[in-house]
């Protein structure tokens, strides 16, 4: 299984980004429900692995950070979910 996606927070973040063109940091924070620092460090790992891309922009003169899922992240998510499903099938 994908080591990076064994974390529930990182898996949740990828699932949030799956059907989105981009999602802002506050929106991810709201839906995942963890602390800013914790989410920030998990997202940094995903960015470092190339699963997610980070984009810093200004909206109404305020800085905004957005995240997008990369093709690599999408593939990793699909593979990881398939592996979890096979694990469950084997266990049943």
């Amino acid at each position: 299984m994908d080591e990076l996606l064994l974390s529930k927070i990182r898996l949740g973040a990828i699932a949030e980004l799956l059907t989105a063109e981009w999602v802002t940091f506050p929106a991810l924070l709201k839906s995942i429900g963890t602390t800013q620092g914790n989410l920030g460090s998990h997202l940094a790992k995903l960015v470092e692995a190339g699963y997610v891309s980070e984009e810093k922009t200004f909206v109404d003169k305020r800085p905004q950070t957005r995240y997008r899922l990369t093709p690599r992240g999408r593939e990793a998510f699909k593979k990881h979910v398939t592996e979890m499903q096979s694990l469950l099938q084997r266990a049943e």
Binding site: L6, K8, A15, E16, L18, S31, M84, L87, L88, R90
Partner: peptide, 27 residues
């Protein structure tokens, strides 16, 4: 969050979370 191999119970929990997120987004 510990980072070890998943056991079936954890895998079920993770898949349920993914399902919840995707069904919320599918509005």
């Amino acid at each position: 969050m510990s980072e070890h191999e998943l056991d079936p119970l954890e895998a079920r929990d993770h898949l349920a979370m993914v399902d919840r997120i995707l069904s919320r987004i599918d509005e």
